[in-house]
């Protein structure tokens, strides 16, 4: 039988400095990489983000090169990024709601009593992971699509707005991940969090098109899928958008507002 106690313990244990953000980040990274859902959502992200882009590019290359084309080939180069956010928000929400669902959250807060630090560590890792995965997925989609375009003589060099759309895809998904973490802490339930996020992005977003007038136009511009999604497209299908970086700044402000509410509520509510 192993001794339970390490005899050097008692007096020194309480004198040790509190583990900081680094320890919390290591713990959250281990959590993230030891469940399958992380890998499945990343696979879904690549399949949707790069796979659909390549498919749509291949199918439309000939038409895009023809005189009848009324869309810019550059709009197609990150086509999948219109749907890939679904995978990103599922990943971000699960990082939080899977803990509430299983009760792990109580272990998390017993181990790291600063709830803000737990939320920060999760947000940093989800943002980092999705930035890398999003950019890589966009590049993969570009690499898959551009040969079809080149074959039709409409190839796009990886520069300017096309290049910006690559890391812009990473930036957009990173922001969505942080938003999803915050919503996860607010509602604490996987189905609820995912429904709210997908509903906002894909249902409410398109529905505001029905609101008439200038007010409707602005409402459309300010929906998160439009504010944040602009940087992920070299040329947008939607002409009624804010400038990409202006839009992204507005998107970050929207995310920050939700994060602030979530952090405030997390501090106040019982775990």
């Amino acid at each position: 039988m192993t001794a339970i106690v390490d005899t050097s313990r008692q007096t020194t244990s309480t004198e040790q400095p509190a583990p900081g953000l680094g320890a919390a980040l290591r713990a959250e990274w281990l959590k993230l990489t030891t469940v399958r859902s992380t890998w499945w959502t990343l696979v879904a992200l690549v399949v949707i983000g790069a796979g659909l882009t390549t498919l749509l590019g291949a199918l439309n290359a000939e038409w895009l090169a023809s005189p009848q084309a009324d869309e810019d080939p550059a709009a197609f180069i990150t086509w999948g990024m219109m749907l890939a956010p679904a995978a990103a928000v599922v990943l971000g929400a699960l990082v939080v709601t899977a803990e509430y669902g299983s009760g792990t959250i109580r272990s998390s807060f017993a181990a790291v009593p600063s709830r803000g630090r737990v939320m920060l560590a999760k947000s940093i890792l989800v943002a980092g992971l999705l930035f890398v995965a999003g950019t890589a997925t966009a590049l993969l989609g570009y690499a898959g699509t551009n040969p079809f375009f080149e074959a039709q003589g409409i190839g796009l060099p990886l520069e300017g707005d096309v290049l910006r759309a690559m890391y812009g895809s990473g930036l957009y998904l990173a922001g969505l991940g942080v938003l999803a973490v915050a919503v996860g802490f607010l509602v604490r339930h996987t189905a609820a969090a995912v429904s709210i996020l997908l509903g906002t992005l894909f249902v409410v977003g398109p529905m505001v098109l029905l609101v008439p007038g200038t007010f409707g136009e602005w409402l459309e511009k300010l929906m998160p899928h439009n504010t944040g999604g602009g940087v992920a497209a070299a040329v947008s299908f939607n002409p009624n958008l804010l400038d990409p970086w202006t839009g992204y700044a507005v998107f970050l402000a929207q995310v920050a507002a939700v994060v602030a509410v979530a952090a405030w509520s997390l501090r106040r509510r019982d775990a």
Binding site: A23, A27, T34, V35, E99, G103, A111
Partner: peptide, 21 residues
């Protein structure tokens, strides 16, 4: 059972250990 069902016992203890150095 307050542990993510998809994680291994070792995985659970490893993140807890990391969180407190």
């Amino acid at each position: 059972g307050a542990v993510h069902p998809g994680r291994s016992a070792r995985g659970h203890l490893r993140w807890m250990a990391a969180s407190n150095a």
